[in-house]
């Protein structure tokens, strides 16, 4: 099944990797480079089934981005996965407090990434 995915990361490498992992699965991937751009992209794209976001980003970080998404009525229930190299518990907690659904530890494994997406999205 094709899913619409919005992936937000300030690192081009990471965006490329996400795209390379997800596109062959038939997912429709939209990419954004920071939180602000992510919120803009969200407005322009087909409503995503899953949002993937990095935490450390310029302009608007992942926490702010998640809050910005959750504030919008249409996206209150959209699953959001946080990409993080920091498996530190407090970061996960902060992301969850902001409204994240789950997380993916970088460097991610393609299968685990897809499993995580399948776990939160139909």
């Amino acid at each position: 099944m094709s899913l619409n995915i919005l992936a937000v990361d300030d690192s081009k490498t990471m965006r490329d990797l996400l795209h390379a992992a997800l596109a062959p699965q038939g997912f429709d991937v939209s990419l954004a480079e920071d939180g602000v751009h992510g919120l803009e992209t969200l407005k322009e794209m087909t409503p995503p089934d899953v949002i993937i976001t990095d935490i450390n980003m310029p302009k608007l970080d992942g926490f702010g981005f998640i809050e910005g998404v959750r504030e919008q009525q249409n996206y209150r229930g959209t699953p959001i996965l946080v990409l993080t190299t920091e498996s530190a518990p407090e970061l996960k907690m902060r992301a969850r407090d902001a409204g994240a659904t789950g997380w993916i530890v970088k460097p991610f494994d393609k299968d685990k990434l897809i499993a995580a997406i399948r776990r939160v999205a139909n």
Binding site: G77, R118, R119, N122
Partner: peptide, 9 residues
Amino acid sequence: YERGSDPAL
């Protein structure tokens, strides 16, 4: 639910 999880999944 607030965090976008779905028990069904």
